[in-house]
């Protein structure tokens, strides 16, 4: 089930996490590791780019819930961007747009972080 991978790009204080492949119960721990790595380093401004993500399951969504509280307590946020329509629908059904800022492009999300400062 190694059909999922993440990569991180540093852009100043903002970390952009790229997701690729299928994010489900089997691959979710990999994303958890990525997030906990960032949180441990005190990097709380995160943009997640969904451009190459084909599928996300409920377990995958759970990963975002696991870290959002701590990140927001530390003045950071997870912003989501570049979702395909299919992935957006999954987020939308559960009401994630009510909890997370979702942007069409990565730049918009980054801009939003910078704007706040």
């Amino acid at each position: 089930m190694a059909e999922f991978s993440t990569s991180i790009k540093d852009q100043g204080n903002i970390n952009i996490v790229y997701l690729k492949g299928f994010l489900d119960a089997h691959t979710a721990p990999s994303l958890e590791n990525t997030f906990s790595g960032l949180v441990d380093k005190g990097r709380y401004q995160i943009v997640v780019n969904f451009k190459d993500l084909n599928y996300i399951s409920s377990a995958g969504l759970g990963v975002f819930m696991a870290y959002i509280e701590k990140i927001r307590e530390n003045g950071g946020d997870i912003k989501l961007s570049s979702m395909s329509e299919k992935v957006f629908n999954i987020f939308d059904l559960l009401g994630f747009p009510l909890l997370y800022e979702i942007f069409k492009t990565e730049d918009e999300a980054v801009l939003k972080f910078n704007e706040k400062k």
Binding site: S58, M65, E69
Partner: peptide, 14 residues
């Protein structure tokens, strides 16, 4: 409200 007591952060129910 009731689920608040038992669900962990990663879990949710639609």
């Amino acid at each position: 409200q009731i689920l608040k007591r038992t669900l962990d952060k990663k879990s949710f129910v639609s």
